[in-house]
Amino acid sequence: MKNLYNICVIDDDKIYQFTISKTIKVYDLANEILIFSDGEEALDFFIKNIDNTKDLPDIILLDINMPIMDGFQFMEEYIKLKPRVGKKILIYMVSSSVDPSDIRRAEMISEISDYIIKPIEPGELVEIVESFRRNIS
C-alpha cells in the first residue's frame, strides 16, 4: 500500500520547502505534505489537531535554525505533548548544520530518529518512508 503517510516539514527556508515538497511529490512518497515555517506554527497545528489523529503527520522533518521557535525548542514542547498524541510519529532532524554540538544534542533526544545533514537526497527520503512502513507493519 502506498501514499498512506503524512509528511510534515518544519523549516523556514522557502526554497527548501519548495524542493522537499516537489521531491516528495515526484517520488510519490506522501499522502499529505504539511509545511510550517517555524516550530511555533507547527506546535499550534499539533495542539489544534491533537485529537484528529489522521490529520497529524507520521513523519516530521525538522530543521534546527528557525526564527521564533527553533528545532530544539520545538522538541521540548513536543515531548510535553507526546503523551496526548495517539499515533507513532517519526522525527528526523534535517539541518545544514555540521556543528558537532548540534549533532550531539540531537542524539541526546530519544524522540529523534536520526540527524540528516542537508541536502537530503531523494534516496534518503525514500528510505525514511520505507523504514516507517516496516516499522508500522
Binding site: 527556508d13 524542493t19 521531491t23 535554525n65 545544514s96 548544520s97 555540521v98 556543528d99 542537508k118 541536502p119
Partner: peptide
C-alpha cells in the same frame, strides 16, 4: 558552515 552550506544544498536540490 551555516550560511553557505544551506544555499549550496538548496542549489543541489534544485539541480536535481
Amino acid at each position: 558552515s551555516h550560511n553557505l552550506r544551506s544555499p549550496v544544498s538548496n542549489l543541489n536540490a534544485l539541480l536535481h
